[in-house]
Design a protein around this nucleic acid. Sequence first.
DNA 1: ACACTACCTGG
DNA 2: CAGGTAGTG
Length: 368
Amino acid sequence: MWKSLVIHRKELALQNTLVNGQCFNWKKLAPDHFQGILGDFFVTLKRAADNDTHLHYMTIPDDSDGKFLTLFKRYIQYDTVKVQELYAEWSLRLKHFKEIASHIEGVRCVRQDPWECTISFICSQNNHIKRITAMLEVMRQQYGQYICDVEEPVETDASSKEEEKKEPLKAIRKIYRFPTVDELKKATEAELRGLGFGYRAKFIVQSVKMIEEKGGDKWFESLRGKPLEKVRAELVTLMGVGNKVADCIALFSLDCADSVPVDTHVFQIAQKLGYIKGLKFQASMTDKLYVEIGDAFRKRFGDKAGWAHQILFAGDLDSFKEVIAESKKRSLGEITKEENVSEIKGGAGKANPEEGPKQIQNVKRLKK
DNA sequence: ACACTACCTGG
DNA sequence: CAGGTAGTG
């Protein structure tokens, strides 16, 4: 049974929020048509082309008591964050932010379950979204609780396309929820390797054990509300969790809106644009440098810098790449030149008077 | 503190 | 090479 929730496209664009790399539990069936697994529910989300204000949803099991709606609202931070206000504020404050953001409206950070988020991002290292999504699907099917069957059009390759054009093949996809700590505890390294997790298999097994020893879900909950530095320090103790993954977990599941995950791409952009203090080029990421780049973002965007980061880099997906690549480059360059940005509400980071755009002269290639 | 590398797998 | 990390000099 279909129901609907009032939320404008500009507050939540399914494409820009659900499959931008912050979570891996959603599948795009068509534009504005997605399916995913959220808690105990299998969810279908849809927007009509002629309706900007309503989001339609259907779940299995049916949401007869509104339990899903509560869960979903918390997931998208419906009551707590208005992204249009953030867009407006940064657009006003920072030249060209608007230019970028106008191409990628409705980007939100979702508030995920920290346990699922942690395992997901351990899988994300040195990996791409498509495979991460596939790996986690396998993990759910192997260790999670069964929810339901869903009929889906089967993926066709080019050669067989002709014959299947008339009546597209349907396949049954079995939907399972994400395993609990106890459920995933049963997985062995060999098992996970066999399932295609590669060298991450060991990290998962060890981290699951560590998480359990620390108290599981209760440990994660105890991290909420703590400052980012503290949260990151705790998370980094897990095997397979470094700064970047820790920041992803903090931002996407533990309410650290000021967390700025610095991946290789952000690192390279920051370097070229002189986000980094001093003129000396550094070939590799260090703890110090990592924090420095994050601080540069926090100084410019304030206590929700992680959201700004997410909006700016959500556009790095193929669908947007060409459209905004140029405007983004200019924009980020512009941002470094902005004065007085530390006045932004809740602006964090230390003021640094002598900081300014410094073109790095001899930027050698990062990778060969 | 920083540099460098191995590491699973597949597009 | 891909939205990294642990381990080693």
